[in-house]
């Protein structure tokens, strides 16, 4: 199993797979003393039960659905140095098999706060800009770790991201590789580490110089590997591997950006029997100053 995991991880690292293009958090603001906010809603879940990568019967109707509303912000000291925060409000529900009985569980509230320091190196060329980023992050346990379906495992976690993006007036690409080191939290809960690679391939079909508005489209591809959580973990964390792919539509006017995204689950392999992640839908609105 470990060997298979290593092979999958190596494939993630060396293949060309992506991350979500977030104009408010990634591309803008890139000016000194710029700042921005974004509200983003995401929803995923499924009543499909997987054993490894095979769908199995689900007579108890086990399911898991998660909705998160993220409040995100960024401040740019200089285009090379930014600070970001992300705080989710979570609404989660599931039907779990407890000793052969289907038990419904539900929880809601503030989740864990994520702080990041994106460090960027830009290169500007004629009709072309690119940047390399290194982003250390920390996830603080601001969510509740109590109850049978906890919002947080109560741990302080550490993230590291390496990314490259390039853009011309018509095309955009982003490659982002990141790793979350999840430490042990309350009550013996320990979500597994996460390794991910995201790729965005974007096309800019329309822009109006006169009123500064336009449309941006992208294909988002993401691959994730999650270590198995400890058996005591009561959050939504689950181990396994998955690849998702889907379209992204971005509309912008002046300093306001609207984004919607659908991610189709192309491949998923769970550790043991678990609900599939399911398809994912996201919608967001951002503004920069």
């Amino acid at each position: 199993m470990k060997t298979k995991n290593s092979v999958f991880a190596a494939c993630l690292l060396f293949s060309s797979v992506v991350l979500a293009h977030q104009p408010v958090m990634d591309m803008a603001p890139r000016w000194d003393d710029g700042y921005g906010f974004q509200v983003r809603y995401e929803s995923y879940g499924s009543d499909t039960l997987l054993d490894d990568d095979s769908e199995v019967a689900n007579p108890l109707g086990l399911k898991r659905y998660v909705n998160k509303t993220w409040f995100e912000g960024v401040y740019t000291f200089d285009r090379a140095i930014r600070v970001t925060f992300k705080l989710p409000y979570i609404l989660q529900r599931r039907t779990k098999n407890i000793n052969g009985t289907a038990v419904r569980q539900r929880n809601s509230g503030i989740g864990d706060l994520v702080l990041g320091i994106p460090l960027k190196y830009y290169r500007n060329r004629k009709a072309f800009t690119e940047n390399f980023s290194f982003t250390p992050s920390i996830r603080l346990p601001t969510g509740s770790s109590s109850g049978d379906f906890a919002l947080s495992d109560g741990s302080i976690d550490y993230g590291f991201s390496l990314s490259y993006s390039s853009e011309s007036p018509k095309y955009y690409t982003l490659f982002d590789l990141y790793y979350w080191l999840n430490t042990e939290g309350d009550r013996g809960m320990h979500e597994g580490d996460e390794l991910a690679l995201d790729i965005n391939l974007g096309y800019h079909p329309y822009h109006n110089n006169d009123n500064n508005s336009g449309v941006f489209t992208m294909l988002d591809i993401s691959a994730r590997y999650n270590d198995d959580p400890a058996s005591a973990t009561l959050t939504t964390a689950s181990g396994g591997q998955r690849v998702q792919m889907g379209p992204v539509l971005v509309l912008y006017k002046d300093n306001i950006m609207f984004r919607t995204e659908y991610k189709h689950l192309v491949y998923e392999k769970t550790s043991g029997i678990s609900n599939a992640r399911g398809n994912e839908f996201m919608i967001g609105l951002g503004v920069t100053f």
Partner: peptide
């Protein structure tokens, strides 16, 4: 050079 995204160039306009 590099000014290929209007959403990202608001800082130029502002300044």
């Amino acid at each position: 050079h590099g000014i290929v995204c209007s959403f990202c160039s608001q800082g130029v306009t502002r300044n």
